[in-house]
Design a protein around this nucleic acid. Structure first.
Lengths: 233, 233
DNA sequence: CGAGGGTTTGAAGTGCATCAAATAGTGTGG
DNA sequence: CCACACTATTTGATGCACTTCAAACCCTCG
């Protein structure tokens, strides 16, 4: 069976039958920036795979205040966790960089999960990883200051195989969104980033950021984090 | 099979055999306040059930800054999610109110999960619930101010079946810890709580808090949250 | 070239943290 | 039962980080 899902986490070793069934109910859509895929409270019928582009996962109050939980890239799925709740999504999802999205029926996945134990184990592994990321997220937002959060974000974007060599980092989406992703205002982001220039000598040109080496960043950001540098996953 | 685990979430419908095996490797300990059960990075061999008392789940940096992820009551388990990672706990756990703790070997659970699909499904359900709580936690800490977070915390403590009647709420552990649980300093907690007195008319006597009805609190706190009042789980 | 959104900068305000000290509460030994 | 020691909590004063509001700037794209 030929399916993009085969390449990613819970589906790497699943049955061909499952993928066939999923692809049968698949629906691909080409989404412009701003397209809202679903909002918190919507009845959850499908889960989504990002073929290209970026999707913002967030929660929003009635008066428009919004907390960005994550911004996820191509090759990831979302909405699948609605399987275990009360049948509603409990966050909202919006395309933030023009994206190709494929959605699949949840019930197919649900049925297979109750038959295929290996799939269930793989799914648990995905969920557990997610949990760890969230734990870290909570820690970051409570302990690190704005500049440290940015530094940490840059480190996660950088290839960290050779920390002693110069590195060029591209911000994957616009700064306003990075700011929101890190739980701060755009103005704060701008100022905190220029504070990073002084502190650890990064050079910023638009969305491109250069550093002579990662050590300064590591010392600056990771000192305010319980994880040691080559940050797990 | 007679086991406390039978009464709680992933084990309600599991096999007697599993419980027997778990109880065989069980180890009960009477823990004074301050007892550290494990810290982030420890090799994960066991998971824990709280028979009585309270346990703080947190992450701590080298210089002592600490982010409290949760404070969990009797009848809950923790540490079980280490099953799916790299074999290490990724948070620390400390007893904060004198507790009876029973620990069980993780490998028994792990083996059973790969044989008993229903157990796996139940476990996923537990994990998904946890994820939802964390999402909400991130939202609260980014959108709500100190007083609103306290109000929300009180609402979760209150029986919310009759929101129009007077309610008495007891703080389940000391105020310093509640403050940390809500991501604020003790001083801030104290001041934010007395702001609640003015705003919604709560009365505070030590660890006891009274309100004529919950409506004021609901309006005040839930307006800064994406969830509608009778907060799910 | 001009419109509009993203980004930066400035000025001012706010909420929370921090430091310091007073007060209340709790358990201990005499 | 009291005095003491120790911790939890409150209160005050001050500082800092981040937000907010406003305006300028820059960049891209029609």
């Amino acid at each position: 069976m030929h399916s993009v899902l085969r390449t990613i986490k819970p589906f790497e070793a699943c049955s061909d039958d499952l993928l066939s069934l999923l692809e049968e109910g698949a629906h691909e859509q080409n989404c412009p920036k701003g397209k809202v895929l679903f909002i918190l409270g919507d009845e959850a019928k499908r889960f989504y795979f990002i073929k290209s582009g970026w999707v913002k996962i967030f929660r929003e109050t009635l008066d428009g205040a919004q907390a960005v939980l994550d911004v996820i890239p191509h090759g990831h799925i979302f909405g699948e966790d609605a399987l275990f709740g009360d049948g509603e999504y409990d966050y909202s999802a919006e395309v933030v960089e023009h994206a190709d999205i494929i959605s699949y029926p949840l019930f197919v996945l649900k049925e297979e999960l109750s038959k295929d134990n290996d799939l269930a184990l793989a799914m648990m592994s995905v969920m557990a990883r997610h949990r760890r990321q969230q734990d870290k997220e909570i820690e970051h937002r409570s302990i690190q200051n704005a500049s440290q959060r940015i530094g940490c974000f840059l480190l996660r974007l950088a290839k960290h195989d050779k920390p002693d060599e110069p590195v060029t980092i591209h911000l994957p989406y616009d700064k306003t969104l990075v700011a929101a992703r890190l739980g701060m205002q755009p103005e704060t982001f701008s100022r905190a980033l220029s504070r990073l220039k002084d502190k650890v000598g990064v050079r910023v040109k638009g969305a491109t950021i250069e550093v002579d080496n990662l050590n300064g960043l590591i010392e600056y950001s990771c000192s305010a984090c319980s994880a040691k540098f080559p940050c797990k996953e």
